[in-house]
């Protein structure tokens, strides 16, 4: 692969052996003043989000809105078809048979809320995203298996290719590397 100019840095990435080491390192990095942190782990690690100072509660709200949209859509579908578009007297029941319309409304609520959870999670995570700078990290295929990675991203105000790397090297990591956005001029 050829690049006219050297690729931009994604950040500095350090590799750790265990979740405990990762959490300790994340805390130290944050204390050192870095804000744009991310960690890459094979399974969700509780406490990591607090250590890095990340909080996001949009997914539950999307699910809630999905549920409301589903309930409304489900009921309106039945109301429109049975009362407005094709009024049909069945056994003298009222056209707007509220209790009879409940099950479909209920199922639509769950259906839309579930799609809210699925699509909301993917959209907020910006997935699918087949390519990302962090994939250039050496040994990164272990991030989905048994290694734990901590990244300081290049868009952090305090980021400096040399200084940040030096700092990360002081953190009990197996390996620290400067990672570029695209492969080619690596290391």
């Amino acid at each position: 692969m050829f690049h006219r100019s050297a690729p931009k840095a994604y950040g500095v990435v350090a590799e750790f052996d265990s979740p405990e080491l990762l959490i300790a390192a994340a805390k130290k990095t944050r204390e050192a003043g870095y804000k744009k942190l991310d960690a890459y782990t094979p399974f969700p690690i509780h406490g990591l989000v607090d250590a890095v100072g990340f909080k996001d509660e949009k997914v539950p709200w999307i699910v809630f809105m999905g549920g409301i949209v589903g309930a409304t859509a489900g009921y309106l579908l039945q109301y429109y078809t049975s009362v407005i578009d094709y009024p049909l007297n069945v056994g003298g029941k009222p056209l707007n048979s509220v209790p009879m319309f409940f099950p479909v409304t209920y199922e639509c609520t769950i259906l839309f809320a579930s799609f809210g959870a699925f699509l909301g999670m993917l959209a907020l995570n910006k997935l699918p995203q087949p390519y990302h700078g962090v994939f250039n990290t050496p040994n990164f295929e272990r991030a989905s298996q048994d290694k734990f990675f901590l990244a300081v991203e290049a868009n952090d105000t305090q980021f400096d290719e040399v200084e940040t790397k030096k700092f990360m090297e002081s953190l009990d990591a197996n390996n620290v590397s400067l990672v570029k956005e695209s492969p080619g001029v690596e290391e």
């Binding site: 991310d38 960690a39 990591l48 997935l127 699918p128 990302h132 962090v134």
Partner: peptide, 8 residues
Amino acid sequence: LGWRGSMK
């Protein structure tokens, strides 16, 4: 889907 195990 390009899952990379980001903490976020």
